[in-house]
Amino acid sequence: MTRTMSTLVVIRGNSGSGKTTVANGVQQRFPRASCLVVPQDTVRRHMLRESDVAGAANIDLIEHIAAFGLIRGLIVIVEGILDANRYGAALERLTESASRSFHYGFDLSFDETVRRHAGRPQADQFTPDQMAQWYHGWQPLPFVDEVRLDATCSLEAIVNRICNDIRVS
Rank of each mutant, 00 (worst) to 15 (best):
L8R: 08
V10M: 01
I11W: 03
R12I: 00
N14G: 14
S15F: 00
G16Y: 09
G18T: 04
T20A: 12
T21S: 13
V22D: 03
V22K: 01
A23K: 11
N24C: 03
N24Q: 13
G25S: 04
Q27C: 06
Q28K: 13
C35W: 10
L36Q: 07
L36N: 03
V43Q: 09
R44H: 06
S51N: 12
D52F: 01
V53L: 13
V53R: 14
E63A: 15
H64S: 12
I65S: 08
A66S: 06
A66Q: 07
A66H: 06
F68M: 14
R72M: 12
G73F: 05
L74G: 00
V76T: 13
I81H: 08
I81M: 11
R86W: 03
R86A: 03
E92H: 11
L94W: 04
E96K: 13
S97H: 12
F102D: 10
Y104S: 11
T113N: 14
H117C: 10
A118D: 10
G119Y: 08
G119R: 06
R120N: 01
R120K: 11
Q122S: 13
Q130F: 13
M131Y: 04
A132V: 04
G137I: 06
P142S: 10
D145E: 15
L149W: 08
D150Q: 00
A151W: 01
A151D: 14
T152G: 14
S154K: 02
S154R: 01
L155W: 00
E156G: 00
A157P: 00
A157E: 06
V168E: 15
